[in-house]
Design a protein around this nucleic acid. Structure first.
Lengths: 353, 353
DNA sequence: GATGGCTTCTTAATCAATTCAGAACTAGGG
DNA sequence: CCCTAGTTCTGAATTGATTAAGAAGCCATC
């Protein structure tokens, strides 16, 4: 059985290849009766329809956008922040008949290849912790939007001001009277972490990771409140509930125990709550906990956290990609955030409620 | 600025197009020094790399598989069963340098187009509730694997025996002594539901939906235990925790109230637990609840449920797609399931514990 | 009876690569 | 000096469609 192409059908029906193409793609260009005959023969021969790669090549448009993650693709489905973002992006893409191609990143080499081979009309770089692949992506010379990190001059961007938002959260805690403060930072996954990751003063560095920017915001608030940074217990952890329990335990087992933990994400905040429950530490009486993101699970858990418009970030990124602006300067959207106070925060014990 | 192609570079360096192509795709075919010169010129000219569509067209391989969902793409990220499945699939794809293209289904027409336009090497049809698009997909004449439903003769398949698994769960409940039984079925989303959806006796129909198959399993168990099906309270609901609360309330507010609810999914079971908590009905003392799927949230919630290997389904489907079997008959994998008894089931009240 | 406008179809160019067969050159062995 | 083998590069065919430009036929209008 040979391959069936437009030509096969054209020969069989006795018309030109063009006419057969029109039968599929521009029905108004030919006689209805002839079109029916063509489609009938096509179906008889088992023609799979116009070849998408050939069509894309000729048309110069794929009808798909690619979303590139920082890590392995499975991350996209494990993290509810990522899931929320994708939901927003997908809904916009859907409306314009555009597909979404998810691109993971098993290893740097594989990434180069996958990015080079992606049949897409544009890329969305989704990377809470910076993205070593920006160069590779830009090389494709397609429309690009980066989300969260990094901000690249001339490339459309969607994000929030992590530093300010984190500062607000810390200010709230300090305002409640807390002075024994512990903070946690999200570090990039193992292997890519350098030793002075916690050195917040390296210039320009904050532009490459939400974890560090939030940490810096926490520090800003502490110092403004007259609390020296070196008196604050600082830990770091991957953004995984399971793994974060270790770091959380480290902080909660210290003596004196902190009265508030500022977590870099809700996921990590949940880990802190888990450990507190294990230890019989009552929240918020003995310990206050603040998260970041306001993922769907935060509300039922009563977690005080910094809300950011997760899904809206996705829709915004989608629109930026699908309807590129005509202006000279690349759009740069900073979303609003706000502190959502729920049931995991209270004044420190002995504050004389 | 003109478009830069292999030819542009070839002209500039003074070699043939073939040689430039080799510089990118088959480094062993040319002199290292010449290759360096070519790559240098390419980078100077801002060459984006070999055009993926052209490459795919010529090679006849895309390096991507498509996953087609039953409903809107956002569903894929809202449902934890789907998320688990995708995680498995993605991990296998990743290992063989293959991308994953997620394909939603905003409307039937849009779907035809998106499926026809997808530059992929194969399709995975993921559809707990049957799939009207099987025909469209098969027309592409690419490798296909269907997951859960529908089972199509000659098409590789991965799934579980929903009917048997559901029967086992119901048998357990009946074995505990329950006689006032309520069951819930998951119906496809509104608009595609016909009126006699609950008529389990329509021939062949059970092959098109986990919801109905599980319902049939519950019925099998009841009748085998001498409990007439018409004495069982039957409700139906979409697979959404929020929406399912309504159906759950309908069952729990009945008089006499059932002592056990057999839910078609964990998501629905959670809704039943929510409503029970609202009403002050104590689980498992006053009410037993059994779910289905064993999603990650089931264990912490203590939900008794039917475990199915969600992620493993994904890896299996991936392998079937990426390493098509050489055998004549299409592989058909039925996964194991088992009942996981946790803290939401007990003998009915007044059974003399 | 020529002119113009429609509809319907065809011709030929184009999209951007890959690949196979073969040419040119170098080097080694007899 | 010739033959063979190996490396490096080229020419031409091929992949499967879309599209702009143009031709043929038909009808109505002036």
């Amino acid at each position: 059985m040979e391959r069936v192409t437009l030509q096969t059908i054209a020969d069989r029906v006795g018309v030109s290849r063009t006419t057969v193409s029109n039968a599929f793609s521009r029905p108004d260009q030919l006689n209805e009766e002839l079109r029916r005959r063509i489609l009938e023969v096509a179906s008889e021969l088992g023609y799979p329809g116009p070849h998408p790669a050939a069509r894309t090549l000729r048309r110069g448009r794929a009808g798909v956008i690619g979303v590139i993650f920082t890590e392995a693709l499975s991350y996209a489905f494990a993290d509810s922040y990522a899931v929320g973002f994708l939901r927003g992006l997908a809904s916009v893409a859907e409306q314009s008949g555009t597909g979404v191609h998810l691109i993971g990143w098993p290893s740097p080499d594989a990434a180069e290849e996958v990015i080079g081979d992606a049949v897409v009309d544009g890329f969305c770089l989704f990377s809470p912790e910076g993205h070593p692949l920006v160069e590779t992506v830009l090389r494709r010379r397609l429309p690009v939007v980066t989300v969260d990190y990094p901000y690249v001059e001339g490339v459309p961007f969607v994000g929030i001001d992590d530093r300010i938002a984190a500062r607000r959260a810390a200010e709230y805690a300090l305002g409640l009277g807390h002075r024994r403060v512990a903070v946690l930072g999200v570090q990039p996954i193992a292997g890519r972490t350098n030793r002075d990751w916690l050195d917040l003063d390296r210039p320009g560095d904050l532009r490459f990771g939400a974890g560090r920017a939030r940490l810096a915001g926490y520090r800003d608030a502490c110092e403004a409140a007259g609390l020296a940074w070196k008196e604050v217990a600082v830990g770091r952890t991957p953004n995984d509930r399971e793994l974060a329990r270790q770091a959380a335990a480290g902080l909660l087992d210290a003596d004196p125990r902190p009265t508030v933990v500022l977590a870099p994400t809700d996921e990590v905040a949940f880990a802190v709550l888990d450990v507190a429950a294990q230890r019989g530490i009552e929240v918020p009486r003995d310990l206050s906990v603040i998260g970041f993101d306001d993922v769907p699970a935060a509300a039922p858990a009563g977690l005080t956290t910094v809300r950011q418009p997760i899904t809206e970030k996705g829709t915004t990124a989608g629109r930026l990609l699908l309807q590129p602006s005509r202006s000279d300067t690349a759009p740069c959207v900073l979303m609003e955030t706000d502190l959502v106070v729920r049931r995991t925060t209270a004044p420190p014990p002995g504050a004389g409620a």
